[in-house]
Design a protein around this nucleic acid. Sequence first.
DNA 1: AACTTTCGTTGATCTATGTCAATTTACATG
DNA 2: CATGTAAATTGACATAGATCAACGAAAGTT
Lengths: 232, 232
Amino acid sequence: MLEVACSECGLDPMCQVLDYAAPGSGVPSGILLRRQPVEKGERLFRVDQPFAAVYAVKSGSFKATVPDLNRRERVIGFYLPGDLIGTDGMANRHYSYSVRALEASSVCVLDISRLEQSGRSVEAVQRALIEMLGQEIALNHAVTISLIRQNAEQRLAAFILALAIRSSLRGLGNKRLYLCMSRSDIASYLGLARETVSRVLTRFQKDGLIRLRKQSLILLCQEKLQQVATFR
Amino acid sequence: MLEVACSECGLDPMCQVLDYAAPGSGVPSGILLRRQPVEKGERLFRVDQPFAAVYAVKSGSFKATVPDLNRRERVIGFYLPGDLIGTDGMANRHYSYSVRALEASSVCVLDISRLEQSGRSVEAVQRALIEMLGQEIALNHAVTISLIRQNAEQRLAAFILALAIRSSLRGLGNKRLYLCMSRSDIASYLGLARETVSRVLTRFQKDGLIRLRKQSLILLCQEKLQQVATFR
DNA sequence: AACTTTCGTTGATCTATGTCAATTTACATG
DNA sequence: CATGTAAATTGACATAGATCAACGAAAGTT
């Protein structure tokens, strides 16, 4: 299982701080749990559960869902190595979505509740928190913009490219991707029918933009995919 | 011009801290400018401008836009009294959108750059920042979810209800609303054609859900609107 | 291994909403 | 006040993508 390097991880600002904090700095030990294994299908937390910790994906992948009105789960995000999970719970005191592993994975766990419990929090810790939250906002922002007003091809092209970028950021190549989620999950996330996802992917393949077999996807022409994603 | 009370304002956590900070607390004076007037059409800041301050709407309204590929502006948010503007710039060091006033308005300005400049920041200030950022994340989250996967009627119903909620939160009634933005702005924001916005609004009116004249909108049946927004 | 269930693909329709066009209304400017 | 420009409304039409349906391929279960 491929792991993301700590330097590429969203939790890194915090890890830096906690590692380098002097023993008497007021940071309780055991607040940061490294490399906890998570089984496929296992839940990190459920909707409305009281907020306790922020997770960083070390290896594997996760999906976040919210319950729909018809009891159908709606996918609102995927988490890959280096990504942070649960930051928005900090404000709400509760998680606003459920998260489960798409495959055997591992995470680092930052026990925020204990951080607060410790009373006088270290300023550097707060700085790190602020940085992490800011990143989260910027990310959500970008996602929202890309999903509204885009047609099916654009959404899927952008989705694939985003995966590629995240993959290359974490040190893996950006040509060979592993689609850890099902077509239905992708469809739910992009606000499309799963049939549409299927059709567009086969169209991309016929047009020589990608090569797709089962879960593995190879980018054949990144520029063209980029064009599909951006031009209308 | 109607003003939001400080207690209802998103910047309040920070104002509390700054007001109550003792003179020798390390908070430079002049960091918080209260009630600055802004003319209609005036810009608070542009895309890519270096981040300098967070704004809180005291009265009036604003819209945020990002430049489209075709040089068309795409509306990505509206700000009403009590709302915070510019929080995401904290992480990026640059604003990721432009903001301009839809009408004569006023804002409180929190000069973050000077806050940082002051060197040793007060812990309470950081706490307030964290709270503000957390709120921002939760809000964006909700917006994203409501925009994907909803049809035109649902989006507009949700949009109107959101306005009503925000209006009542700031102490005004929730029956009479003022649509400060144009139909085109609404359309752009919701990812619809402006003709569709027009049609759906008149349909709502024919069905007795709302009464609409020019910019003023009256909620006639909030429950039904709620149903439209949630059920499919 | 046999069975059941889930997942992915493909085809045939149907419909919501975008696009184009014409008209009306509101608003700004001389 | 008159005139020009932008915004809003309404209608006619086109189409992207949802829905319904059928089938084959994986994957999980007994």
